Simulated assay, not measured.
Amino acid sequence: MASPIKSYVPYSIFLIALLLRPSSLTTAADFSSSVCSGTLDPSRCFQVIKTIPGGGQAPSLESLCGTAISFSLSKGNQFHSYVQSLAASASNPKLKQVYSSCAENYDDFIGNLQSAQVMLKRQDYNGVSTMASSSMTEVDTCSDSFKEGSVADPSQLIDKNKYYYTLSLIILRISNKLGGAA
């Protein structure tokens, strides 16, 4: 007669293996929480992540990253056009220069995200992180140009930059997680 302990060993091993494997029940809310919890302003991060179409139904972090990059590219192209129109219509020479500089920053923002998109397809998560970080720098540089130019921002561009900064931050956080960073 077999020992009762020996008959439970295969079942125990199966249960342990089942519990240790990555959960397929991870939800988009779990992804959002994981991405936003380590940021300086989690509530802003949650607000921005909710604006990403399909982000709430992403089946994986990689899918969420791809969606966030595509969405950021689309919004970034629209915003780049807006900033170019501000530069074209500004009558104040200092303001015109600042807006022109910001248009260049958003051109680079878009280029960084295009590179990130290619890197994500190659599963180069460190490269995606680098490009997302560079996009954040471009947005910061645009905001800083108002201070450096000692000019007021009648368009509220600095406030709008916060949205694009947070989109880039979300991509950075997701790609860091995909690459194994916390």
Rank of each mutant, 00 (worst) to 15 (best):
D41I: 10
I170P: 02
A58R: 09
L19G: 13
S43H: 15
S135N: 00
D41H: 12
Y125Q: 00
T26M: 15
S43N: 15
T39S: 14
K96P: 10
G111P: 01
Q156L: 13
L113D: 00
T130R: 01
P93A: 08
M1P: 02
P154L: 07
T137R: 01
P93F: 10
A58P: 14
G54L: 07
K96E: 10
L19V: 07
S12P: 02
F109E: 02
N77Y: 06
S101F: 11
A182K: 13
S85H: 12
L15K: 09
N126G: 11
G38Q: 06
K94N: 12
P93N: 14
A28L: 13
S3C: 06
D140A: 01
S24F: 13
E138I: 00
R21K: 13
D108W: 00
L113K: 00
K75C: 05
G38V: 07
M1S: 07
L18I: 11
Q156C: 06
V151R: 05
Q123L: 13
T39E: 05
F71V: 09
S74A: 13
A103I: 01
A58F: 15
K96C: 12
T26V: 15
D159K: 11
S74N: 12
T67I: 14
T141W: 01
M136E: 01
I170L: 05
K6R: 05
A87R: 14
F109T: 01
S134M: 11
G180N: 09
Q114W: 11
